[in-house]
């Protein structure tokens, strides 16, 4: 009775040990990316991810998996419709296909794209108007012990029609490992240096540098709840050192007519301090401006003021108001 039991214990220890060795030493090499410094609007650009596999597997076992790769790009690029991912490696070249939204990432219980967004976030960008999109190689590959390879993933993507400064996100992984929070061997991600898109019409969307005034979500309509933030840490303004900051805002319709304004300083317009000389207010524009049914706010103009409204800060710390246009696209 004793001997088989002892053998069983040894077997368990061995299995546990090999699993540990496997987990510690098998995995992917650190991810680096080649991203050009700039591009013209509507240009098709190729970004390249460089990584590799370092299989350390207990002989004679093998490891069979599919390559995962992901990108984090501005939603306005519409990358889901037009980005193409391919890879090159000593074990073969091929294409990656976008994982369907209906497929659930098993650890998080949400789609792969949402799981990646939850896990990797927006990195060093300050404003969130991004989507993570995860792709999987159509072919699977079997590795044996010490079969180290380097591989590249090429991302061909149209950079959209808006001027912007942005840092893009990239990910590579192994399909059978899922997105486990504790794992750092099979998921490698990184964010690029600043990538500039220029040559288009309109203002530059700056995702990277702190802004004096921002509105989230970047895309919204007057029936959304929007968050306005005044970041006094960006530069010196007349509001420096004040504990109370208020919002002063005007609403315009699509003809450019002023349809409502909130100019007073009271509880309704008082912004809450969130530390780091930043103040925040959440408003539902239709309720905030008491807009009648049937009317729409097309855009806002706003300032940040002190408690009696005598000191104001506008766009870029000038007399000009901050402007925000309601839109979804």
């Amino acid at each position: 009775m004793k001997r088989p039991f002892q053998n069983l214990v040894y077997l368990y220890i061995l299995a546990g040990l090999s699993l540990t060795i496997f987990l510690v030493h098998c995995g992917l090499k650190a991810l680096t990316v080649t991203v050009p410094a700039q591009a013209q609007v509507d240009e098709r650009v190729t970004f390249v991810m460089h990584s590799g596999a370092e299989p350390r597997i207990e002989e004679p076992g093998t490891y069979t998996t599919q390559l995962l790769a992901g990108i984090m790009v501005p939603k306005s690029w519409n990358a889901r419709e037009q980005a193409v991912l391919t890879y090159t490696s000593p074990k073969g070249n091929g294409t990656l296909r976008m994982i369907p939204d209906s497929e659930i990432e098993p650890v998080s219980g949400v789609s792969w794209h949402q799981a990646a967004k939850n896990m990797f976030g927006i990195g060093p960008n300050l404003v969130d108007d991004f989507e993570w999109i995860i792709y999987r190689s159509t072919q699977s590959y079997t590795f044996s012990n010490n079969e180290d390879i380097d591989f590249n993933v090429q991302v061909a993507c149209n950079v959209g029609s808006e001027n912007m400064l942005v840092r893009l996100g990239f990910y590579v992984g192994s399909s059978i490992e899922n997105l486990r929070p504790e794992d750092d061997q099979y998921k490698k991600f990184t964010f690029s240096d600043v990538f500039e898109v220029s040559g288009g019409e309109g203002d530059v969307q700056d995702f990277v540098n702190p802004q004096l005034g921002t509105i989230q979500p970047v895309r919204s309509l007057d029936n959304d709840i929007i968050t306005l933030v005044f970041n006094g840490g960006v530069m010196n303004t007349v509001l420096d050192g004040l504990n109370e900051v208020y919002l002063r805002a005007q609403a315009f319709d699509s003809d450019g007519q002023l349809i409502a304004e909130v100019m007073e300083q009271n509880d309704k317009t008082k912004m809450g301090s969130i530390g780091g000389r930043q103040f925040r207010i959440d408003i539902w524009p239709r309720g905030f401006f008491a807009i009648e049914k049937g009317k729409q706010i097309a855009r806002l103009e706003y300032f940040f003021t002190n408690a009696d409204g005598t000191k104001t800060v506008g766009y870029g710390n000038t007399e000009e108001p901050f402007r925000y246009t309601f839109r979804c696209e």
């Binding site: 979500p217 895309r219 309509l221 959304d224 709840i225 979804c328």
Partner: peptide
């Protein structure tokens, strides 16, 4: 969604 379809409440 209330405004843009991309914003979920």
């Amino acid at each position: 969604s209330l405004g843009c379809a991309g914003n979920t409440y």
